[in-house]
Nucleic acid binder design. Structure first.
Lengths: 119, 119
DNA sequence: CCTACATATCAACGAACGTTGAATCGTAGA
DNA sequence: TCTACGATTCAACGTTCGTTGATATGTAGG
């Protein structure tokens, strides 16, 4: 991931409404949510939401597809993981003070980290 | 980490100059860097840098200590790891599409993840 | 005490951001 | 084709952000 893209992603997530959009889409799963549903879920006017969705899409954090009259938005899981990986690559840099808690968070989650023996 | 704090941290990292400050401080290690050194390293005027440093400090990403005539700034490693952990907790949510690449990035780094057999 | 140096604070300006309302585009059904 | 509906685009606005220059604080040395 380029630095430019990462900066855009951080700036995008630094806005409350956009962050709530991303969280709602991640929670919704790969099926995604229609723009109208997102609007009422986040509490933003439709036209305003379009503005934020374009920003998030440009930052590589969400994707969209048309489905009948609706436009369905989904979280771009690869973009999100790229962002986390970029942050760790730029900040971890051989410093266990940063990585250790992240590794702990990984094993506290339902994901296959390679050493999660808790499941 | 609170959502409010995480939003402030994302917004802080979304600014190029501030991001470069954080990267410079992480690279510098726990010893940190003086404000003047940071100013020339990032290419920002001293008074302007103070503004950004206050923002980063308020976001919990850096800390400061006075040392003679200089003020030394250091990366807040716990704040950074908290931020990554928060992002994964809010975005991972049992979705291996996000966690797997992060786990891969972890093992590509010099940190003890518990299963890094590459070193 | 006075000077020199390193940072921080303040007021002010221009630029970018986020919101709003009206108008437009695209799709589905009568 | 006409209407209804969902979503987007556009122009305008008020606000916030980032930068600049001048000023103030705090520290070390003469």
């Amino acid at each position: 991931m380029e630095e430019r893209q990462a900066l855009a992603a951080f700036a995008a997530l630094g806005q409350e409404h956009r962050f709530r959009v991303v969280r709602a889409l991640v929670t919704a799963g790969p099926d995604g949510l229609a723009a109208g549903v997102l609007a009422s879920e986040v509490g933003v006017a439709g036209n305003n939401l379009s503005f934020h969705l374009k920003e998030l899409s440009h930052a590589g954090l969400i994707t969209s597809r048309r489905e009948g009259k609706s436009v369905i938005y989904s979280a771009a899981y690869d973009g999100l993981s790229d962002l986390i990986a970029f942050l760790m690559r730029d900040c971890c840099q051989g410093r266990p003070e940063v990585c250790a808690p992240v590794a702990a968070a990984l094993s506290a989650c339902d994901c296959p980290t390679g050493d999660t023996a808790h499941a």
